[in-house]
Design a protein around this nucleic acid. Structure first.
Lengths: 334, 334
DNA sequence: TTGTAAGCGTTATCAC
DNA sequence: GTGATAACGCTTACAA
């Protein structure tokens, strides 16, 4: 593959001149510029990005750490970043993600080895200290979907608790008294916060949530099915279900319909996330909008800015609040 | 950030020795090895991937070109690659993809600039010659979802026509006579081939497909809705719909239900791709399984092999054939 | 406007 | 076993 040197000698100029042409450098004669360009074309020259990154000490690509691309939620996240990068013509270096603290660690380290200045990281398993440690080494290190106070101005996150509160309030407004919750069995922060929000709303309304009305399962369709199955076989009485996410809600929906329990006539149901499938379900799911794509775009922009040294004021916070999307799975209690 | 040089002087050894330690090189004393390792740890040393790629003239990362990550189909594709890379601890360099020939071109070029030896490319817009040209420069260049004879042993693709034939045959078996087709308005190869397959099956059964029974729309839910809308308002009579993909099928389903046309009682419906949402629809979609994830894993493996110089024999072909997934959206005509 | 030359962090080829 | 040293392809002062 042709190098800058080959071009230089073919064009009868020096390396420096060619380099200037490549980078649209200022001081180079029009004639020379054209000639060099022509020769680069003819020889199919392509600058070596690695050499460039080495000498400039900077890698213009943005690094991304996420798990499970086939999960629609992460796909949206990735897409949000991609959207921004496309407009700015920036590469994405994706480090397949997070199934354990070790893999997450490995993923971030790889990005650092490539000297990525900007990184958007979705980490569920690493602890705050480790993350802060990385952030201290890389100015453009941005966390998505998680808030750590020490680097609060480089976190883009969702107020999970507010969402939980919102869904409970919505269901209370519709006159429901007997509320069941199906949550995620993975005790990472999100489910805990969502559940807290629900409990908060309930207690503000002078009610409480008995443990018997909470089921924990895997946060997917199967989990939703299993959770409802359990609720039913334990004979729990409920007129509404608050699900941890849309996938669980969809599973719950299947199971309810299979038992001839009409939704929303007999039981109301609320999801969380507003992924595509919420719209495809029948009835369409009432759910909470988690603007992950927008948040991801925001995070990418933030990472790029920080990498350039433009930090938001300390104390600035990028908290997003979910909103309720009213569709067809909730009705007033009869 | 600490370099190999810093480590060397801190440990009182030469660059060469440190390099040997990093790469588990053979000839280095145990004591030295441990000492150097310890110092690397203390100083938080990370090898510079760019320098490495430069001097070794190889980039161990695999390059990926795809469009639209939030499309579940591409998400599965990406996931298939990711799965393989995770086990082999290989980085993914993702070049956001294909919205036009120019962006596709740009995406591939970027990967080449990083000197990726292995690449998995999903290209809809570039012509055969261009792609072959790239393939000739990069041994590890593999095409997914497309077949070009000249580089046939580096293509992993689906027999779209066979799928089209299959879906038509399935619907004929169920006694349907009045068949409508909703296809993609983008005249890339896939929809044409799928449609060809359908026509083939029909003509083998002594039937034909009038143009009035075909609708072209965008290959998403909205497109599916619009297509059915059009069919209905044009008064076309049909007892079955063959959709270009699951998203269109889901849109069609919505629209049919909104018009109180029961599926599958009044109208049967078949999708294509078997993405997640086919399972979430009510009724669950009968569709064609497009094993894209498996194919993607295969393509990644192939790319890595080719990059190492291990080519499959010329003439070898990696054609996948879709299979029918029978769910609940098709019934025998009454 | 153009050229020279130093150096980015590694690996690899020699010597010792 | 270990150490000099020359690349790798490029950018960027500094000279001319």
């Amino acid at each position: 593959m042709a190098t800058i040197k080959d071009i230089a000698s073919a064009a009868g100029v020096s390396l420096a001149t060619v380099s200037r042409v490549i980078n649209n450098g200022p001081k180079v004669g029009d004639a020379t510029r054209e000639r060099v360009k022509k020769i680069m074309d003819e020889m199919g020259y392509r600058p070596n990005a690695n050499a460039r990154a080495l000498v400039t000490q900077r890698n213009p690509a943005i690094g991304v750490v996420i798990a499970e691309l086939h999960d629609p939620f992460f796909a949206s996240l990735a897409h949000g970043i991609e959207t921004l990068c496309r407009t700015r013509n920036i590469q994405i270096l994706m480090s397949a993600g997070s199934t354990s603290p070790e893999t997450e660690m490995r993923a971030i380290e790889t990005l650092m080895e490539h000297r990525c200045e900007a990184m958007v990281v979705h980490s569920k398993f690493l602890d705050d200290d480790t993350l802060v440690h990385f952030a201290n080494q890389v100015p453009g290190f941005v966390l998505i979907n998680r808030y750590i106070e020490a680097i609060g101005n480089r976190c883009v996150w969702l107020d999970n608790q507010a969402g939980g509160k919102l869904m409970a309030e919505h269901i209370l407004h519709h006159g429901h008294e007997d509320i069941a919750v199906i949550s995620s069995r993975y005790q990472i922060l999100d489910p805990v916060q969502r559940l807290d929000g629900i409990k908060l709303a309930l207690s503000e309304a002078g009610k409480s949530l008995p443990d018997s009305h909470i089921e924990f399962a895997t946060p997917d369709q199967e989990g939703g099915e299993a959770a409802v199955q359990n609720l039913l076989s334990r004979g729990v009485k409920f007129s509404a279900i608050l699900a941890y996410n849309d996938a669980m809600a969809a599973g719950a929906l299947s199971m309810l319909l299979d038992h001839n329990i009409a939704v929303p006539d007999k039981v109301s149901l609320i999801g969380y996330d507003d992924v595509l499938l919420a719209k495809y379900c029948r009835p369409k799911l009432t759910t909470l909008r988690y603007p992950i794509e927008m948040m991801a775009t925001h995070a990418a922009k933030l990472a790029l800015d920080c990498a350039k040294g433009e930090f938001p004021e300390p104390g600035t916070t990028f908290k997003y609040t979910p909103t309720i999307v009213k569709r067809d799975s909730v009705s007033r209690v009869k």
